[in-house]
Design a protein around this nucleic acid. Sequence first.
DNA 1: CAACTTTTGGCAATCGCTTGCCGGTGTGTT
DNA 2: AACACACCGGCAAGCGATTGCCAAAAGTTG
Lengths: 346, 346
Amino acid sequence: MSDTSAPPAASEGADQRMPTIRDIAERAGVATSTVSRALSNPQRVNARTRERIEKIAAELNYVPSTQARGLSSGRTGAIAVLVPDVTNPFYFDIIRGTQNQLKAAGYTQLLVDTEEATDVELDALRRLRRTSDGIILAASRLTDAQLAEVAGRQPLVTINRATADAPTVLIDTPGAMVQALEHLASLGHTKVTYVGGPTSSWSTHRRWQAIQEAASRRNIEVTRIGPYAPKTLSGAAAADAALGTGATAFIAFNDLIAIGMLQRFRERGVRVPEDVSIVGCDDIFGADFCNPPLTTISSPIEQAGRTAVSMLLAQLDPLYGGTPRKLAVMPTHLQVRASTGPAKLA
Amino acid sequence: MSDTSAPPAASEGADQRMPTIRDIAERAGVATSTVSRALSNPQRVNARTRERIEKIAAELNYVPSTQARGLSSGRTGAIAVLVPDVTNPFYFDIIRGTQNQLKAAGYTQLLVDTEEATDVELDALRRLRRTSDGIILAASRLTDAQLAEVAGRQPLVTINRATADAPTVLIDTPGAMVQALEHLASLGHTKVTYVGGPTSSWSTHRRWQAIQEAASRRNIEVTRIGPYAPKTLSGAAAADAALGTGATAFIAFNDLIAIGMLQRFRERGVRVPEDVSIVGCDDIFGADFCNPPLTTISSPIEQAGRTAVSMLLAQLDPLYGGTPRKLAVMPTHLQVRASTGPAKLA
DNA sequence: CAACTTTTGGCAATCGCTTGCCGGTGTGTT
DNA sequence: AACACACCGGCAAGCGATTGCCAAAAGTTG
């Protein structure tokens, strides 16, 4: 127990040099290449040597350098997740989903907030080209052309933004719009207003389309207001404008806006659901305990995140899962709570 | 316009090799070291050459490799932010704060969810030693000894977890507990129950202490129940237990639990604030629109995140800001809303 | 104009790990 | 006994930057 090297490095206590595969190799009396293989390609090395190496690695409390590994292997072990706004609860479930799945697969998650801005998104995408192995892009604000270019450069999966150039996870909110409309119709509403989200949002257009279609087949008159930023604060303006349309029921782009409207209506003494009905979208945290609890469109958002990761991983490593899917559609359903009720007779 | 190299690499359209400083150096007719300096140490190189190099870099759409840079310079350009639960709205604001400040300083944020588990936290910390330049640790579950060890190994700032071994950002919720108690006392409450958070949470102990102290100086009898997980779901059990204490007012570890209690009381027909009063903590998203709106302890959480980043940056780079502070305390105040009211006469 | 200082840019050694290639052993097949 | 073929481990060449050291060029000074 005193033949090998290991200088007594113990110093002040702060930052001693970290062990590298070289240190392990020396201790084990093998080449660094063997250590490398033992640690990241186990079946390529004899079981006994591997165990010995692993033991030493553990003793030294060895942690491989992602940097060096990435530099030489070309892979970074990181996946970037881009969302328009980290404080929007909707994305938190997505993030939670991607986080879990990525961790399980041994990847690191790089969270990026694109601030609902196209240029920030593009810039992030640009620098991430080098930093990450792939990208999950939620609710992208990019144009089709931009998206195509990005998809051509790096592995990509989009969420709530269909494109032919990359696999996509869609949350079928448009499908649920039909349910929402039927629900409102059966409550006697004949005039419905859609409170639209940001112009650059792909989802808001799809939802509006779905609503128009569904309405034309029923006896419902629909109008649209907006755009509104997807924040509770925008809800106030939206509520005021909504009242001006003369409609008795409103479908909001998302729950944030819907909740903001709820608050504003309360301020103005408009009763929900007695005077007007509101339907939200996403069933975010808070939708169940606001006042009144919000009727909204619910879906397995966290699973959408997980699915996106699976699709991306399949793209990166063809052996990963079965046939790589190009499209996954998350089911949705109308979660009826107390913000919708019978239409008020004129 | 045809003298230099640049083989027509245009191929299928997918992943051509990315430009490196070598490519730029060749094009510019200088050494790679010059390019490196021109790009990351501008004043070290002649203005004209620098401009030329910058121009070429832009043309080539050059993006430096963080990996290579990190490998040779020792810095990674990334800061890790560890939170116990990414879906807890309290951390939304912290994350938003760190995100902003880090981006402004040119750092990448690595978000890690430690799942309220000590071992996950330790493990993440271990591997992050190599991956990040510094760490922001929110509401750590570590023991003092563990924390000290971690702090000895890597630059660290804690949030809501004081330790002598690292700079800390504290949100003065204990201070606000006094306000809360005074508020309740003035409403005639004489029996108050504290609904405690996780045992491993440092904050819950401090709050309880503050409450006990404040209560002993007034004419209030306080009891404590718990521990409860900081989720709305735990609120139901907490509500039931709280009722059993015979107290007329409850102070919850955080808003999540408080909101859960609100829901449970509603189910059981206990009226808030007529029958019992509830005070939450954190003033998270949702506290203002739940039913009834929650009286809670409010503070500039996002700023806490920003401050933590500043303190960490000061630690990494002494020239960054003035004297590195070891402690920052965020002010708090009681945000009175509708969940507290006069004590019900026995 | 010589001696000296400051700028500026090049050389080459790293950083820590991966991986293509090669050769030495051990086992299995005729 | 001879040949083929896994299996295993070593060698060494990178990956793409940074940076200490050095020398040529340019600027200063008396």
